[in-house]
Design a binder for these strands. Structure first.
Length: 597
RNA sequence: GGGGCUGUAGCUCAGCUGGUUAGAGUGCCGGUCUGUCACACCGGAGGUCGCGGGUUCGAGUCCCGUCAGCCCCGCCA
């Protein structure tokens, strides 16, 4: 094999990362950045970095020309240089097993500076014990931050995942179609980013929150299987796992049921996982209905890497002379609990920390007891007789954590407690990769003032068995809707959609829209459905979140080249900025200083 | 919109109960050094203690406000 032809350009013969012992004797022209320099006086080492990795370049009087040696003594970090030289095996004692290229070095015949770099404001190279620079500085000096191998590798992984997704979906017969970025404001959901129209003064486009409606229209148009790596925009406050603009893998197909989507998407996730070292996906994934997920885990996105499942312990505790339990049961609530095997070793302080996690969800507190060889301890224990421990499934050495009250309160509390207890008690994972479909999400959820809102979006097909309760008991209606959950994180969600205009109209009416509003806001969708839309369904995944999890990055900002801050600012380019009055006038807009400003 | 944490040299951090000239490591500049890979050694420069106000004889330190970054709640169909 000669120097890698795909890497050869006019400026270099190859990249550095692939050089190995078998390249000994090869003459190479390398170009890249000075990562670090070790100047021993008569001998000089330069770590040369490019996208592919690092290689040590050595300069010495026996093989480097005098002028280049002089240049070598003066180059600084991040200077862009070109090296002509020969690959040499390093002396045995000078090999570096930490480095992929550590068996060899390139002895430079010549070294030239292609572009001198300012002393970097934040270091690209970092001392082993040195913390990362402040995130503000990393974002401000993004050029330098992106040169760090960690961020570079995250973006390279992102590329491979997107490529794998395209290849897989293409192989399954899906067609990528682009949909508008300038689109129509949506009546509900997240706040839209608005874009003023110069041609139509006083009128606005919105940036899409997702291509949802367009992809359904593409189904009506007969495209049958669609996907898109789609940019989406939501003008809401941020989190570590939320950005105002983000990327979805958006998928829709015709004449399908949930099983088709599950099969394809399990294949997709398997293909993606194959690109990410340390991530595994084995189909078929587990399934859990939404109702069962809440019953067993207290959340619709359970981390099923470990057990600690919730149980209804109302019956075994029904005879308890304990006000909290009595009151909860009499009010129609339940007592639910989980057992931490061996959890009796947890200290009171540790258990209080678990309780704090539960209280942070709004619950008044937790009930708990330990079963010990001598009997029991903990607030609940003095109400318990020996028979209770057996009925609760509590063995000596175990800890029981319980919550009493309405499910709406106890579920979030027990979910938080379950995760905190696992960590505190060191309960080992039963599996490293827990993939789970949560199915049959409710179509509606209670909104303010007794109104209904969509649980997912207003286009979810109600479960056929529940259709007759749509108007009479809408909150009990399950939808053909599902989420994919990986290790307790929601990767995406989807549904079979409503494809008949009458049913769509019924659902929109239940959401409080009158016919005029429906026609105004959703007329173009209803028209498409009425034109002969096939039954269809799909799913959308948060691409950034997938990359973040697969790359084990701590933040979405570490898998997006140019992310926004928590305050939705772009520090690197400095956006947004005020706009001149004249520019606004042309758009038919005028600035108004807020009265309280 | 609300709550919390952080802000001291280019970078990462220390700075006690308010008290002399605000320190360390690294980076930067100058020098010595032929097998380093956190090279080593010698010398040097480098500070609006985020910003504004207040308390005090005296503020990096205490108080109020404000800005920025991060985390959380609300919000995110």
């Amino acid at each position: 094999m000669s120097d890698t032809t795909i890497e050869r350009t006019e400026g270099r013969s190859r990249m550095v990362g692939g050089l190995r012992a078998q390249d000994e004797g090869r003459e190479v022209v390398l170009a890249g950045w000075v990562h670090r320099r070790r100047d021993l006086g008569g001998l000089l080492f330069v770590d040369l970095r490019d996208r592919s990795g690092l290689v040590q370049v050595s300069l010495g009087p026996d093989w480097t020309d005098a002028a280049s040696l002089e240049v070598g003594h003066r180059v600084g970090a991040e200077d862009v240089v070109r090296v002509r030289g020969t690959v040499h095996l390093r002396p045995d004692e000078a090999r570096n097993p930490e480095l992929a290229t550590g068996d060899i070095e390139v002895r430079a015949a010549s070294l030239e500076v292609l572009n001198e770099a300012d002393t970097p404001a934040i270091p690209v190279y970092r001392q082993p014990d040195e913390e990362l620079p402040a995130e503000e500085l990393r974002l401000r000096h993004r050029v330098l931050d992106l040169r760090r191998p960690e961020l570079r590798d995250n973006l390279l992984l992102r590329h491979r995942l997107i490529l794998a997704a395209r290849n897989y979906l293409d192989a399954q017969g899906f067609v990528e179609v682009e949909t508008p970025i300038l689109t129509k404001p949506t009546p509900e959901g997240a706040r839209d980013f608005l874009v003023p129209s110069r041609v139509h003064r006083g009128e606005f486009f919105a940036l899409p929150q997702s291509p949802q409606i367009y992809k359904q229209i593409l189904m009506a148009a007969g495209f049958d299987r669609y996907f898109q790596i789609a940019r989406c925009f939501r003008d809401e406050d941020m989190r570590a796992d939320r950005q105002p603009e983000f990327t979805q893998i958006d998928v829709e197909a015709s004449f399908v049921g949930p099983e088709d989507i599950f099969r394809w998407m399990e294949g997709l996730m398997t293909a993606l996982a194959a690109e990410a070292p340390g991530v595994e996906a084995v189909a078929p994934f587990e399934r859990l209905t939404w109702a069962d997920a809440l019953e067993a885990y207290g959340t619709d996105r359970p981390d099923t890497r470990f057990g600690l499942r919730l149980e209804d312990v109302s019956a075994p505790l029904a005879d308890l002379d304990f006000g909290i339990v009595r009151g909860a049961l009499d009010a129609g609530g339940r007592v639910r609990a989980f057992v931490v095997p061996g959890g009796a070793t947890l200290s009171r302080k540790q258990i209080e920390a678990i309780e704090t996690a539960a209280k942070d969800t709004g619950a008044p507190g937790l009930l708990w007891c330990k079963r010990t060889d001598e009997g029991g301890s903990g607030p609940l224990s003095r109400f318990l007789a020996e028979g209770h421990y057996e009925a609760l499934g509590l063995a000596p050495g175990d800890l029981l954590l319980a919550a009493a009250g309405a499910d709406a309160v106890t579920s979030p509390a027990l979910d938080a407690a379950r995760r905190a207890a696992r960590e505190a008690a060191g309960v080992p994972f039963e599996r490293e990769h827990a993939w789970l479909w949560v199915t049959e999400f409710p179509v509606f959820e209670p909104g303010e003032d007794g109104a209904l809102t969509s649980n997912h979006h207003p286009f979810v097909m109600p479960h056929p068995d529940d259709l007759d309760r749509l108007e009479s008991d809408p909150l009990s209606v399950r939808g053909l809707a599902y989420d994919l959950v990986y290790n307790g994180a929601e990767l995406g969600s989807g549904s079979v959609r409503i494809h008949r205009p009458e049913l769509q109209r019924r659902v929109l009416r239940l959401l409080g829209l009158d016919d005029e509003a429906i026609d105004d806001k959703f007329g173009f969708l209803l028209g498409a459905l009425a034109s002969g839309a096939p039954p269809h369904g799909g799913v959308a995944f948060g691409m950034d979140r997938i990359v973040m999890l697969f790359a084990r990055a701590g933040s979405l900002r570490d898998v997006i080249a140019f992310p926004k801050t928590t305050a939705a600012r772009a520090l690197f380019e400095g956006a947004p900025i005020p706009v001149a009055d004249g520019d606004l006038r042309e758009l038919g807009l005028r600035k108004e200083i807020p009265a309280d400003g």
